[in-house]
Design a binder for these strands. Structure first.
Lengths: 233, 233
DNA sequence: TGTGACGAATAAGTCTGACTTTTTGTTCGT
DNA sequence: ACGAACAAAAAGTCAGACTTATTCGTCACA
């Protein structure tokens, strides 16, 4: 699942990044490149590259004669997929999941509305295919199969909107849906009402009914929010 | 205005980054670290750090025995403020501006709705203050003053929503609004209707009227979209 | 006692060169 | 024609020396 894995540099990043996003160092903490290099048993060159990447994510700030200062979380690039993954793996996972779900509830209805206008015939076909896949996996504890089609479905909607900012949220949605299935309480089969809504949404997009697509998506995301309320009130 | 400026590393990044986001190298193009180091007259260490940062933005991918490959734009981290700035400074600026404005139209209404519920008394005060500042600068070609308060206004709304993902879009909105004022056609005073809407929105938030706040914001963003249609049809 | 300038300490920033590792393309043998 | 061994190429890693900016402490002067 981890993206960075490759190389010495990536391994250090995958340790230090989560430590910071988990709040391991209070804002204003100062790290020294040399000490970090010693701790991870890598050369300063490698450590410097890691710090540069962390800096580009606005997790830290490197200043001469001072060191590497950890920035407050309000400065972090919380849209960076890497940062999102790190935070979802950490302790404030529930809060993070809620933030992302609220974001979904804002973006996806508009995206669906646009998709209803802009989707190609091929994308419509993919959509119904995904919806059918969801139906087929909606009973009998086939959660993995269901998740797969659910993720694909939302990805197609976001892409078909024709807006690149929306399209890039596909990974975020995937992360949220995967999180719900894997880490949280999800023993039972998915809500039948949600499955129906997805099928209807695929139809609405195919029928070019933007208003209906928007409304249906709003119901889907509302369901996702309520689900969170039940889990972490 | 530029964030990175500091250091040799930052200067190289501020040249190479825009070149890539401007499409100067077609996807799949291969760059060599050594050649780049020569071209910018810096050491390989510095160049490697630059490449690492570019890689963390998913602008390029570095592979052994191959080189630094430029990735297709659909892979880019388009939410990275740095990338946004680079792209807004480039050729496909209009397209970018439209994407971001559509994103605003999705997010801001929901943010305003949440702000109406969660805003502190202090934030409500800031809001009315900003709205008054907009009114005061709405006539007589005081565009800079107007922009200042406009940016502050939207920033407060996004922050007051209590959702960190929304809050982090403050910079994006600032960039869009600044872009509209500076680069595009904006000779005349701002639309009086928009000014009124902001004043009313401040009132709605103070009155804790979430539905009204959402509706008013929808009108504001709709106006922003129409403005774009007029400029670049 | 407060203040400003000078200087020393410090940690990041930069450069260089040598070496390692992985991947790819080629060549050679069957 | 196919597969395996080999060679080349480029990134990856390391170590050490040197530069530069910044901060803090001290001391002289007002």
């Amino acid at each position: 699942m981890s993206t960075t894995g490759r190389g010495l540099h990536g391994r250090v990043l995958d340790t230090l990044g989560p430590e910071i996003t988990a709040g391991g160092y209070p804002p204003g903490s100062v790290l020294r490149t040399d000490e970090l290099a010693q701790r991870f048993d890598v050369s300063r060159s490698v450590m410097r590259e890691v710090v540069r990447v962390l800096e580009s994510m606005h997790l830290v700030e490197s200043r001469r004669r001072v060191g590497v200062t950890v920035l407050p979380s309000c400065e972090w690039n919380v849209y960076d997929p890497q940062v999102i993954r790190w935070r979802l793996a950490g302790a404030d996972r529930p809060r993070q999941l809620r933030s992302l779900t609220v974001l979904r509830s804002a973006v996806e209805p508009v995206a669906a509305s646009l998709a209803a206008r802009n989707a190609t015939a091929e994308q419509c076909a993919e959509l119904t295919e995904c919806a059918l896949g969801m139906v087929a996996n909606s009973r009998g504890h086939k959660l993995e199969g269901y998740l797969f089609h659910d993720v694909a479905f939302h990805r197609v909607i976001l892409t078909a909107s024709g807006n690149e900012m929306f399209a890039r949220l596909g990974d975020v949605v995937a992360e949220v849906l995967a999180g719900r299935t894997h880490h949280d309480v999800m023993f039972e089969d998915p809500d039948p009402a949600a499955v129906t809504l997805h099928v209807q949404l695929a139809e609405a997009v195919r029928a070019r009914d933007a208003a209906r697509a928007e409304k249906l998506t709003r119901e889907i995301t509302e369901g996702a929010l309520q689900e969170l309320d039940i889990l972490a009130p």
